[in-house]
């Protein structure tokens, strides 16, 4: 299980990565992240929405209201061009961090 500190840091990357595949509303977004990480990353409502609102203020994502077939109003989030721009360096930074940690653990086990 990944610790809470690392989870917080990866949360933005997770949201941006999943939204890169297409727009989603909050609940579906949380489910998709959970499924794609085999449950390692799990967003509760309390964790998800403050982060989505903050990312929206930063203009990385944009939320628009949509009405589903059953008449339920839901806010759908999509990646903005600024969000797409943010995603690439973020992915690179995290990949570098994990590679560095992998190397470090291999050295210390040797």
């Amino acid at each position: 299980m990944i610790g809470s500190g690392i989870k917080r840091g990866t949360a933005e990357l997770a949201v941006l990565s999943v939204l890169h595949d297409g727009p989603l509303h909050g609940y579906e977004l949380a489910r998709r992240i959970e499924q794609q990480t085999n449950g390692a990353l799990r967003f509760t409502l309390a964790a998800l929405y403050p982060m989505l609102y903050r990312m929206e203020q930063q203009r990385w994502i944009r939320g628009t209201w949509e009405t589903s077939a059953n008449g339920r109003r839901r806010r759908c989030y999509r990646l903005t061009p600024a969000g797409k721009k943010k995603l690439t360096p973020l992915q690179r930074e995290w990949a570098e961090l994990f590679h560095a940690l992998q190397r470090l653990t291999k050295v210390s086990h040797a």
């Binding site: 509760t44 409502l45 309390a46 929405y49 403050p50 982060m51 609102y53 903050r54 203020q57 930063q58």
Partner: peptide, 20 residues
């Protein structure tokens, strides 16, 4: 149960929304 502290959630939503 997804929200254990509604006051804290309220505060964090306000902080996130008011930044911009």
């Amino acid at each position: 149960f997804q929200v254990t502290d509604w006051q804290d959630l309220q505060r964090r939503i306000c902080a996130a929304k008011k930044r911009g």
